[in-house]
Amino acid sequence: MTSNQSAGTTIDWSEGFRVVAGHMELGLTEASPETQGFWDGVERDQLMIKRCVRCGRHLHPRRMGCPDCWQGDLRWVEATGGGTVYSFSTVHRAPAAVWQASAPYCVGIVWLDEGVALFTRLVPDGGGEPSIGDRVVVSFRALESGQKLPVFLVREGRS
């Protein structure tokens, strides 16, 4: 369960791409029409985000249109992969056994240098907890569910 459907194939919504963790099914997490480019990028170790062709604002990969311009003409661009820690929490009690085996682990929100926030797994340099403002850089790893995901390595020291 590491691959999303490749670009150009027809997405089969009846089967979907499911992440099952222990007894828990997370629901449909397959690439959807508007996110296919993001998951294709993950396969290539590239972090893809969206950009409004009108105002130039960078947007979350799930956006279907520019929320400011109210138009749907967006294009995929590769992010630099750098950013800062906006917030974080170390999970000690995981929601299911598949994650509990990795606990404690840190989930957080990074601000990409392009001005887009992403929820992610934070991997502190040398363990411990990150600090708000720490620099991060993207990496790609298969996490507990088996799905390959962008994670962020924390470099200590504020930006």
Partner: peptide
């Protein structure tokens, strides 16, 4: 957590509901 988190961009990272709210607490 499956109904509190975005199933595609948040849930695969293993957040619990407390860890989602904790992002707000840390800020």
């Amino acid at each position: 957590a499956t109904i509190e988190a975005d199933p595609q961009f948040e849930a695969p990272y293993g957040p619990s509901t407390p860890s989602l709210y904790a992002q707000v607490a840390q800020r």
